[in-house]
Measured scan of single mutants.
Amino acid sequence: NQASVVANQLIPINTALTLVMMRAEVVTPMGIPAVDIPRLVSMQVNRAVPLGTTLMPDMVKGYA
């Protein structure tokens, strides 16, 4: 099973992602693959992402 990107903290809307905000976890359903974490750094979320939420492609501006 491939790990997905999960929020390590509450990420407010329009926040630029940093490594500290994300962790890799095997979850269902799968979200953004953990291998993409370096690519996500400095991209912004388009909604508030609660702690423990799996990041989906439509939550990150410019990802999809």
Rank of each mutant, 00 (worst) to 15 (best):
N1D: 13
N1I: 14
N1V: 12
Q2Y: 14
Q2I: 11
Q2M: 12
Q2T: 14
Q2K: 10
A3D: 07
A3H: 08
A3E: 12
A3P: 13
A3C: 04
A3Y: 12
S4I: 01
S4A: 04
S4T: 11
S4R: 02
S4Y: 03
S4M: 02
S4H: 01
V5F: 02
V5G: 02
V5H: 01
V5Y: 01
V5L: 04
V6M: 12
V6F: 02
V6A: 04
V6H: 02
V6K: 05
A7E: 01
A7D: 00
A7W: 02
A7P: 01
A7H: 01
N8T: 14
N8V: 09
N8C: 03
N8G: 09
Q9P: 00
Q9M: 13
Q9C: 04
Q9L: 10
Q9F: 10
Q9Y: 11
Q9D: 13
Q9N: 15
L10F: 15
L10M: 12
L10Y: 10
L10K: 12
L10C: 04
L10A: 09
L10P: 14
L10E: 12
L10Q: 06
L10G: 11
I11P: 00
I11K: 00
I11N: 00
I11E: 01
I11W: 02
I11Q: 00
I11H: 01
I11S: 00
P12E: 09
P12D: 13
P12Y: 07
P12Q: 08
P12M: 15
P12K: 13
P12I: 08
P12V: 05
I13A: 11
I13H: 09
I13P: 12
I13S: 13
I13T: 11
N14L: 06
N14T: 04
N14S: 09
N14K: 14
N14M: 07
N14R: 09
T15N: 07
T15A: 08
T15C: 03
T15P: 01
T15W: 05
T15D: 04
T15M: 10
T15E: 14
A16M: 12
A16S: 11
A16H: 06
A16I: 10
A16K: 07
A16Q: 04
L17C: 01
L17Q: 00
L17A: 00
L17P: 02
T18S: 15
T18W: 03
T18M: 12
T18D: 12
T18I: 04
T18L: 12
L19Y: 11
L19R: 08
L19T: 07
L19E: 08
L19G: 08
V20Y: 10
V20M: 11
V20N: 12
V20G: 12
V20W: 08
V20D: 14
M21T: 04
M21P: 00
M21N: 07
M21I: 04
M21E: 02
M21R: 03
M22K: 00
M22A: 00
M22F: 06
M22S: 00
M22R: 00
R23W: 04
R23E: 08
R23Y: 06
R23H: 12
R23F: 04
R23A: 10
A24C: 04
A24D: 07
A24L: 04
A24I: 15
A24W: 05
A24M: 14
A24E: 06
E25K: 06
E25Y: 05
E25L: 08
E25Q: 07
E25G: 07
E25F: 07
E25V: 15
E25D: 14
V26T: 05
V26C: 03
V26N: 12
V26P: 08
V27L: 07
V27P: 01
V27R: 08
V27I: 09
V27G: 03
T28M: 11
T28W: 10
T28E: 08
T28A: 09
P29Q: 11
P29N: 04
P29S: 06
P29H: 08
P29E: 08
P29W: 04
P29C: 03
P29R: 05
M30D: 08
M30C: 03
M30W: 12
M30E: 12
M30H: 13
M30T: 09
G31M: 02
G31E: 01
G31V: 02
G31P: 00
G31N: 01
G31Y: 02
I32K: 01
I32A: 03
I32C: 03
I32E: 00
I32D: 01
I32S: 01
I32P: 01
I32V: 13
I32T: 02
I32Q: 00
P33R: 11
P33D: 07
P33V: 05
P33Y: 04
P33T: 08
P33H: 15
P33M: 12
A34R: 03
A34S: 13
A34T: 06
A34W: 05
A34H: 09
A34L: 04
A34C: 03
A34I: 07
V35Y: 13
V35W: 07
V35L: 10
V35C: 03
V35M: 12
D36L: 07
D36G: 05
D36V: 09
D36E: 10
I37C: 03
I37S: 05
I37K: 06
I37A: 06
I37H: 02
I37G: 05
I37F: 05
I37E: 02
I37D: 01
I37W: 02
P38C: 04
P38L: 10
P38W: 06
P38M: 08
P38H: 15
P38A: 09
P38V: 13
R39F: 11
R39M: 14
R39L: 14
R39N: 07
L40G: 00
L40K: 01
L40Y: 02
L40P: 01
L40R: 00
L40F: 02
L40T: 01
L40N: 00
V41T: 06
V41G: 03
V41K: 06
V41A: 06
V41Y: 06
V41L: 11
V41R: 12
S42G: 14
S42V: 03
S42W: 11
S42N: 07
S42D: 09
S42I: 03
S42L: 11
S42Y: 11
S42K: 09
S42A: 14
S42H: 09
S42M: 11
M43D: 04
M43P: 00
M43E: 06
M43L: 10
M43K: 09
M43H: 09
M43T: 06
M43Y: 07
Q44G: 04
Q44F: 12
Q44P: 14
Q44N: 15
Q44E: 09
Q44L: 11
Q44C: 04
Q44W: 13
Q44D: 14
Q44Y: 15
V45S: 05
V45C: 03
V45E: 00
V45G: 00
V45N: 03
N46T: 08
N46M: 10
N46I: 05
N46E: 14
N46L: 15
N46Y: 12
N46K: 15
N46W: 10
N46G: 14
R47H: 10
R47A: 07
R47G: 08
R47Q: 11
R47W: 07
R47L: 10
R47D: 07
R47T: 14
R47S: 11
A48H: 14
A48K: 14
A48F: 13
A48P: 11
A48S: 08
A48D: 13
V49I: 15
V49D: 01
V49A: 05
P50R: 10
P50E: 09
P50F: 10
P50C: 04
P50M: 09
P50N: 12
P50L: 10
P50H: 07
P50W: 08
P50V: 09
P50I: 06
L51D: 12
L51V: 13
L51Q: 08
L51F: 13
G52T: 03
G52L: 04
G52P: 00
G52I: 02
T53H: 12
T53I: 09
T53C: 04
T53V: 12
T53G: 11
T53K: 09
T54Q: 04
T54A: 07
T54I: 15
T54C: 03
T54V: 11
L55Q: 00
L55F: 06
L55Y: 02
L55S: 00
L55E: 01
L55D: 00
M56D: 05
M56F: 15
M56Q: 15
M56I: 11
M56H: 14
P57R: 07
P57Y: 10
P57S: 09
P57G: 13
D58P: 11
D58R: 05
D58F: 10
M59N: 10
M59Q: 11
M59D: 11
M59A: 11
M59S: 13
V60C: 02
V60P: 01
V60K: 00
V60F: 05
K61F: 13
K61T: 10
K61N: 14
K61H: 15
K61R: 09
K61C: 03
G62S: 12
G62T: 11
G62C: 04
G62V: 05
Y63H: 06
Y63P: 08
Y63M: 05
Y63G: 05
Y63I: 07
Y63Q: 04
Y63T: 05
Y63K: 02
A64F: 15
A64V: 12
A64S: 12
A64D: 13
A64E: 10
A64Y: 05
A64H: 09
A64Q: 15
